[in-house]
Amino acid sequence: MRRFFQICKKEFTSYFVSPIAYIVMAIFLLVTGWFFFTTFFLFDQASLRNFFSLLPLIFSFVIPAVTMRLFAEEINIGSYETLMTLPLSPLDVILGKFFAAVFFVVVLLIPTLAYAVCIAFIGDLDWGPVIGGYAGAVLLGAAFSAVGLLASALTRNQIIAFIVAMAICFALTLIDKMLVFLPLAALDFFQYLGVGVHFENISKGIIDSRDILYFVSLCFIGLYSTRLVLQEKN
């Protein structure tokens, strides 16, 4: 367990050594801030619902940028070999990198608490959905991080890793907006598959075990596939 923590610490700090962390954070805050406040006064509601409804879409391209380097860079420069021959189990490495990405997502979300505080000053903010929203955002971020980690393990090229992860995340986000094109019988299934419904439920403040299970199983599938991909490499 201590070893897993060392990997996590190393990965997390190396985000902040390179400019990636600051660029990603700046873009994220700029985009969310812009979309949120341009519509906020039109709706005239003291809630963060608009902010949260945008998150799946924004996370779809922000999180792949966070996760793309995790394995692809190591495989490319060869440090993957050095890492895997240290006394670490593959699980230590995968979980270490995964949680480093999740913590980074948490750090990414912290400045957005300012939106909530601002709104609480000018209107009567219901904190329930806000807390639910943040919990959902972390779950969503974790699920997308798992997807990104898998994409990163598949290739030595970070750009490919980014595009593959983005494609999967976009597909998961948009699938329930494309339901019109799908046969009626498969409708429920595809709606369940998409991120949208589950995330909306949580961000309304409804904590349903089915939604949590959905995100947790998405993480599990991503991480387990990563394990299989790495196993295939040797």
Binding site: K10, S14, V17, S18, I77, G78, S79, Y80, E81, T82, T85, L86, P87, L88
Partner: peptide, 17 residues
């Protein structure tokens, strides 16, 4: 792995550290 110290060819290490 605990028993072995290994230096891969051309010493690939973390560049940024």
């Amino acid at each position: 792995k605990k028993l072995i110290g290994y230096l891969p060819e051309s010493a690939p290490l973390y560049h940024e550290m």
